[in-house]
Simulated assay, not measured.
Amino acid sequence: MPDSTDFVSTEVTFSGDPVALRPVDEIRITTLVDNVYDGLLEDGPFTTRETFGRASEPSPQFEGGRTEVGLLGEHGFSSLVTVRRGTEETTLLFDTGLAPRTMVTNAERLGVDLHAVTGVVLSHGHFDHTGGLAGLLDLLDRRRLPVLVHPSVWTRRRTTAPGQAVFELPTLSKTALADEGCAVIERRDPSLLADDCVLITGEVPRTTEFEKGMPPFHQAWVDGAWHHDPAVIDDQALVVNLRGQGLVVLTGCGHAGVLNIVKHAQRLTGVERLHALVGGLHLGGRSFEPTIAPTVAALAALSPTLVAPGHCTGWRAQQALATAFPAAWVPSSSGSTHRLVGA
């Protein structure tokens, strides 16, 4: 397992010139954890689905004493990302899901060897993206594991939604991660990984008029008191420049706003073309419904080839995206693999 100096190949302080993100020949994004698992989804031009027949478990109610099992779904997100440049491949994890064992269970059922990952990138500190670290570290027997985060990932947060009990979110512990064998790397600025083939955006500037962030009941503990936390400033995304095709953008929740994220990726790389958008877009719930129409309209102007939103995108936004992108939109599901190849 590489240490932190191997994992982050280049630290970037963006000054306006494009960062030296090297084009890749192929990217494969396997969704290890999403809110749903649908064993009846069909393959598409870029996406293969996990159905049944790969994994089984003992069950005495069936002839032969076993039954087939699919994958687990939960309110969380995790992706395995593999990039190839020539004959060289690198694999990393982007987020780890909610529960300690969901991600590793799904990886086992998919036949994915998590020992091959070079490190972990956390999109932000919310527990539905970080909870699977415990199961991963158990699997790896506490071997040294690079984990790249924004410095605000340790922020204590809570929700005070009307009509609901106050809920303090589990807060990630830097000390605990270090004790468990993680080599924690804190970067506010962008970082290049995988021999400069993968860009992590770092902190994303908020520039659009309509992406206003979290509602007032999402709060952070700052300077000894609870305050509205609209920005979730630790939110960051993963970006790859697919040779001859354009940018592939992977989000966790997209708290920065998906258009803010895409625009930032374009500024950082100097590449205008958006080829694919995968991951959570956080457009679910009444607080975000006014954002759906302008988001879909702005994305439509970019004409991506693949749109695979999941996790916190919300059913109304999914419906709008499916309508706007009849050829590009695909539903997300645990076990889906999106394979994109350069031109």
Rank of each mutant, 00 (worst) to 15 (best):
L277V: 01
A301D: 14
V271C: 08
G285W: 03
L268Y: 04
P304V: 08
K263P: 03
R273L: 11
R286D: 10
V278N: 04
F288N: 00
L306V: 14
V271M: 07
G285Y: 05
G279W: 00
G270E: 02
A297K: 11
A276Y: 05
G285T: 09
L306R: 02
A297M: 10
G310Y: 06
S303N: 07
K263W: 15
S303T: 11
A308R: 06
A301T: 13
P309R: 01
L306M: 07
F288Q: 01
L281E: 02
I261P: 05
G270Y: 12
T305G: 13
T291L: 14
F288L: 03
I292R: 03
G270M: 08
I261V: 15
A300G: 10
G285M: 08
A293S: 13
L283R: 00
V262A: 04
S303L: 10
H264C: 05
R286C: 09
R267G: 02
G280W: 00
A301R: 06
G280M: 01
G270W: 12
A293R: 15
I292C: 04
G279T: 00
V296F: 14
I261W: 05
A293Y: 12
A298R: 10
I261Y: 05
H264R: 15
T305N: 12
V262E: 02
T269Q: 08
G279F: 00
F288G: 00
R273M: 11
T291S: 14
L268F: 05
H275A: 13
A298V: 08
G270A: 07
V271I: 13
L283N: 00
A276N: 06
A300M: 09
F288C: 01
L299E: 03
L306E: 06
N260Y: 03
E272T: 11
L306T: 03
L302T: 06
F288V: 00
L277H: 01
F288H: 03
L274Y: 12
L302V: 07
V278R: 01
G279M: 00
L274S: 09
A308K: 06
L302C: 06
L302I: 09
G310A: 10
L281H: 01
A297E: 15
R273A: 14
T269W: 08
V262T: 09
G284I: 04
A276H: 06
P290L: 13
L306P: 10
G270D: 02
L302G: 04
T295E: 02
E272G: 12
L306C: 08
Q266F: 10
E272W: 12
A300D: 13
P304M: 11
P309I: 01
L268S: 05
V262H: 04
N260M: 06
H282Q: 13
L274N: 09
T291G: 09
G285F: 05
H264G: 05
T269K: 15
V307L: 14
S287Y: 09
R273Y: 14
A298N: 09
L281C: 04
L277K: 01
I292K: 03
I261N: 10
G310Q: 09
L281G: 01
L306N: 04
L274H: 11
T295R: 02
T291K: 14
A301C: 08
A293P: 05
P294Y: 12
L268G: 02
L277S: 01
L283M: 04
V296M: 08
V278I: 15
N260R: 05
A298Y: 11
F288I: 01
E289M: 12
A265L: 07
V307H: 02
L283K: 00
T305S: 14
